[in-house]
């Protein structure tokens, strides 16, 4: 970004210098030729400046697109936390094994693998987190099904580049 600005100001300085130099030459016999040359030069410089502007606009568009993608991804990422919350409570409160199992299978599609690690924070003291033994998402959801206890809050979620969850942190309440 900074480099682009510096380059473009250098270019216009050169263009100005060239114009002054040519404008200062007083030889009339060569004036026409000189004028034609200057016009050509001017056109070339203008073309270059336009190309430069084009490049700058392209960069800006790219940056904006990236930012938007990031925002969109972030927005998408908020949804999985809510989705997970819903799935977890559906599994824990399910009246029968079959419906719990189908919720588990649906929820698994949000994860990069059924073996995605799940970390449960049991306490936090002076910024140091105490965890329970790490488990996997499949085991955790079966645990919800068996014990009917949904006592953990969704904490940090990590995603891969396809938006699938690669690590889930839960917080015991």
């Amino acid at each position: 970004m900074m480099r682009t600005i510096r380059n473009s100001s250098k270019l216009s300085m050169i263009a100005l210098l060239v114009l002054l130099m040519f404008g200062g030459a007083g030889c009339k016999s060569k004036k026409k030729a000189m004028e034609a040359q200057a016009a050509a030069e001017k056109a070339r410089l203008e073309q270059e400046a336009a190309a430069q502007r084009e490049r700058e606009a392209e960069l800006k568009r790219q940056r904006e697109a990236e930012e938007e993608a990031k925002r969109a991804a972030e927005a998408r990422r908020e949804t999985p936390a809510q989705k997970l919350d819903l799935y977890f409570s559906a599994i824990a409160n399910s009246g029968n094994v079959n419906s719990a199992n189908s919720s588990i299978n649906e929820a698994l599609s949000l994860f990069s693998s059924p073996d995605t690690p799940v970390l449960i924070v049991i306490a936090e003291e002076n910024g140091q987190k105490d965890y329970d033994r790490p488990t996997t998402i499949r085991d955790y959801m079966n645990y919800l099904k068996d014990t009917k206890k949904n006592m953990n809050k969704i904490g940090n979620i990590k995603f891969d580049n396809t938006g699938k969850i690669t690590e889930l942190e839960l917080i015991r309440q």
Binding site: P117, L119, I122, D130, Y131, D132, R133, P134, K158, T166, E167
Partner: peptide, 16 residues
């Protein structure tokens, strides 16, 4: 108190 590696970082946990 145990240690394990998850995604390249060390996680300490209480194994009960």
């Amino acid at each position: 108190r145990k240690k394990t590696q998850i995604a390249g970082r060390t996680v300490e946990f209480w194994d009960v």
